[in-house]
């Protein structure tokens, strides 16, 4: 196969064929992909289908706790799962820079396969393009995902049923991913053990939904951090939100790095965190259920939907002061996902 990716690996000829067979089909191994047809033929019977797409350009492509491939699968699975859907099928398209090490591609693809298996999704179709050196940065991945959505969950992605008294829950510490990326860029010469929180959350979400509790809204707090989710939620629904800063979990190492660099963890990216809005009466039940799950151990009720301050997300600061949470104007960090 050679040590590095050549332009020919994207030509559609023999090299392409070999690459697809020995890396992609081998790792993603499933009967639909093995057909190697132009389209994956999916037999779906469902009331609704959730359909999502995303592109991954993270720099660096390997970082503590993950890589671009794992991120691509988790990101796609989570986008489907937070919509209330059961993720089923994923596509994966690779844009690879000429000269990219074959070994790294194998590692990334193997991680994607492993993550997909864990999440119970299959990668059914894909594409490979190779571009001249300098025309992309190492490797970009585009994915799409399809999930099955039961009628009763169709309100979750928009949060159409939220109302004052609902509680806001997060499934653990914030800002880990963004800060892990910063650290792995050797930004400020930090030596830290911060790892990305990148994980597929469909298992956790399924348990929550299966409990029958009234979940009104879910969103994964990726770029823009939880601040963006909270602002969008309050703005879209013209409702007030109050968040208690002291209840929002932030790991000490992440907090330290944020303090030093002047980042607000509320605005830093996550890749394994969901913000949930749950009916007030069900909040404690959901919380204790979440705490029993691998990706929800440090879950916390961080605030609630209120009838005052319509359209605004208000933070009760750790010293008891009040201020608004604003949507970030620009990127705090470039290319984090």
């Amino acid at each position: 196969m050679g040590k590095n990716i050549l332009l020919g690996h994207g030509s559609g000829g023999k090299l392409s064929h070999d690459l697809i067979k020995t890396i992609f089909v081998k790792q993603f191994e499933n009967p639909i992909l093995s057909q190697q047809t132009d389209s994956a033929i999916l037999n779906i019977k469902a009331e609704n289908i959730a359909f999502t797409t995303d592109s991954y350009v993270v720099d660096p492509i390997f970082f503590p706790g993950g890589n671009i491939g794992k991120l691509a699968v988790c990101g796609t699975v989570n986008d489907l799962a937070v919509s209330g859907a059961t993720p089923k099928y994923i596509s994966a398209a690779f844009i690879i820079e000429e000269g990219f090490p074959m070994k790294d591609l194998e590692t990334i693809v193997a991680d994607m396969a492993a993550e997909a298996k864990k999440a119970g999704v299959i990668i059914v179709t894909g594409d490979t393009k190779v571009v001249n050196k300098g025309q992309c940065d190492k490797l970009f991945i585009n994915t799409a995902g399809i999930g099955i959505l039961e009628e009763k969950y169709t309100g979750i992605s928009t949060g159409r049923d939220i109302k004052a008294g609902d509680k806001i829950i997060i499934n653990g510490s914030i800002a880990d991913h963004g800060m892990a990326i910063m650290a792995s860029r050797n930004f400020g010469n930090f030596q830290t053990d911060i790892k990305t929180d990148c994980a597929c959350l469909n298992g956790l979400i399924k348990e929550i939904l299966d409990s029958g509790c009234n979940v009104k809204f879910m969103r994964d707090a990726t770029r823009g951090g939880i601040a963006t989710v909270l602002c969008e939620l309050s703005e879209t629904h013209k409702t007030g939100i109050e968040i208690d800063e002291a209840k929002v979990p932030v790991n000490e190492n992440v907090r330290g790095m944020c303090e030093l660099l002047g980042f607000d963890p509320f605005y830093v990216a996550n890749e394994g965190k969901i913000v949930l809005v749950v009916a007030g009466d069900d909040a404690e039940k959901v919380l204790s259920l979440m705490k029993t799950h691998e990706f929800g151990k440090h879950s916390s009720i961080i605030g609630e939907v209120v009838s005052s301050n319509a359209g605004k997300a208000i933070l009760i600061t750790e010293i008891g002061g009040k201020r608004i949470i604003d949507i970030p104007a620009g990127e705090q960090l470039p290319r984090i996902c």
Partner: peptide, 9 residues
């Protein structure tokens, strides 16, 4: 001052 909401206190 603004981040901690000091004026409100």
């Amino acid at each position: 001052i603004q981040k901690f909401g000091i004026p409100s206190l």
